[in-house]
Design a protein around this nucleic acid. Structure first.
Lengths: 212, 212, 212, 212
DNA sequence: AATGAATGAGGATTCATTCAT
DNA sequence: AATGAATGAATCCTCATTCAT
């Protein structure tokens, strides 16, 4: 099953014929799977074309270089991640609830897109700008949300830049551990626990004078 | 300045002469710097030996392969990171304070060991087992600390496995952003803000019935 | 002059274009000549590609490794040697005559295929299984011939396994000496003398009660 | 158990001290075993010194190069083979009997010196002159024997050069097959069968007008 | 649009040999 | 006499990319 429903890669200025569009999609999917499974450096163009079922030369009809597909994949994942999160959060009554929904959606997304998620992680070393872009767009939007929420009193005040990176790091590691590494983790429980930490912190809860 | 004070690499079965030990150290340092600066795949053995000021073949007197040095560096960083954190935290009166000190120490450590920190990050893709080992030892000890602190009532109760990974992720991302990427960040302020998030969470603080 | 008329290398699953087939042939010929002239270990891939007039990388389009060409060459020689001998012997009225024709054909073949003959010899050390295969197929067929001839009374009875190896050894050494080392030997005379030894042995001939 | 009783390597002009002589012997033995087991090209000097239990540099105290040991080994084997054969044959009443004893002694010798026998075989490709020397000395002596025997009427007349190479080839292959490759062969039976072939040839025996 | 062939720069690794101690 | 360290030439092999068809 293709991981690309909703993607936005090169659909404009792309291949003119239907056949061409099909080939492009096959290559993109194959690249995502190969990069995800073997990693960028262990993946040869021939792996991709073989998996896509096309000739070696065909790759260069659609991409200028190996890095280009990789970057395309990362960029695409950025878009899709944002969509997925925005979607998950859009009906949240307040920011805290949005956090709760967000972390859960993120874990599910990571698990549903293992290959591509790994690609994004590796981008840090293969295409740092693409990686930075991925997180910058993300962190900007995220920071705004926090600032507005803080202004509305939905969350405490704080250095939102720092908080955003801390929160993204937490989600990322949980995505890694419970999305990629451990296949049988209970996403519900994990996201609940994580949300609790992010919302309430580690400090003991004071309730009617008792610590819990 | 050598990044290896306190390291534990190959002190067993290693070189028999003083000269040999010196060469080993030079190679190790050079490898850390090159890998840190260029990344594993862009680093050629000749880069390392050139920087170390020894002949190409000399590398293979001390290491069986490129991957071997890399792994040695990661393992070494694991030891040193644990030392650094244990050290920073050892006088903390309670767990919350320990968290505060820990995050700060971690940021400082990351900044003081940029090269090797990057090596560790990349290990995720170059030597996954080494990377896993790095975090597993770490997370095990961390989880214990949290469990005991929770039992003592110093922190709230929760799924410590999840919390540990969330916290490590937060620290890691902050280490990346404020340790590696942004050289002029105010470590004090960042670690304070981060500690506040980790300790108190995002939820608005209730004080005398008012939200802040 | 190509040494490959009648060869059977890689005609299956091989190159798809005519150009490819031509390149393969060039490489195979060049490899035979280089290996024959310098020996396996002194021959670099670049020697082969240079002689073949193609780029270095082209070699690896057609062969997985240096050993692979080598083995291909040995296997090919096995086929061709059998063909040559079978051909030479097919009209012999009886086994003794076949031996006579065989040893002569073998010497001629060795001389006409110096390079590849040397390759086969060296296979003993470079690719023992290929070498063993070469002789095993050979010795099996040969032993059958002897057994049947013995049954028909054309030759004496004896341990055919042993005789086959002794005869192959004799031929091989003669091939070495008079085929490879001494270019001006009289093949006719040599094969006559050899055949005489193989057929009649060293014992003095008894004719009318006189020893000769 | 050392394979070097009766050897003649460098015992003159060699090491002055007893310790030195012992080291030399250890290196020689180790070299023979390693070359025999792995082959010349797969054997590194370090393999030899490790097996000999001495330091790497020590090798070059006793030998100028890798090839030098190899050649020394081959030359030594030449001497020892001749001794062994001369010894086995010295009481033979006539040449035919000598052949019988010779082939048997050769097989036994090959089996008792597998490693070094293999070394000699490989010399063909590693040190052709040494190999040639081995066989030339051998073939010269052998040819003389045959000529004289023929003159005495003990064997038939023939081209002794050719016969010598044929006979050596036969012995060599039998040594290979029954000495090196097949460990459980019955040397008695093999040498009997081989001697019969060499003496009487393949032709059916005529006895009282009957063919056998 | 598709592709198989060709290429050579690049890089890891081996190892015989030298040398200072 | 003994040796551990140092070295770099030599080679195999990979693979992204180009190109002619």
């Amino acid at each position: 099953m293709s991981q690309h429903s909703g993607s936005e890669i090169d659909e404009r200025s792309g291949p003119k014929t239907e056949r061409g569009r099909r080939t492009l999609r096959k290559l993109l999917d194959a690249a995502g799977e190969e990069f995800g499974a073997r990693g960028y450096h262990e993946t040869a163009i021939s792996h991709i074309t073989t998996r896509a079922g096309v000739g070696l030369g065909t790759f260069y009809v659609y991409f200028k270089s190996k890095e280009e597909v990789f970057r395309a994949l990362v960029a695409d994942m950025g878009v899709r991640t944002r969509h997925a999160l925005a979607d998950a959060v859009k009906d949240a009554p307040n920011r805290l609830e949005a956090e709760r929904l967000g972390i859960r959606a993120f874990l599910e997304f990571a698990r549903a897109n293992k290959s591509l998620y790994r690609v994004v992680m590796e981008a840090q070393f293969v295409a740092p700008e693409a990686y930075a872009a991925y997180y910058l767009v993300f962190s900007d939007a995220y920071r705004q949300q926090l600032s507005q929420a803080a202004a509305r009193g939905e969350i405490s005040k704080g250095d939102d830049e720092v908080r955003v990176w801390a929160l993204m790091g937490a989600s990322t590691f949980l995505g890694l551990k419970y999305g990629l590494w451990e296949n049988d983790a209970d996403v519900d429980a994990v996201s609940e626990a994580a949300a609790d930490l992010m919302i309430n912190g580690l400090a003991p809860r004071v309730k009617n004078g008792d610590a819990t």
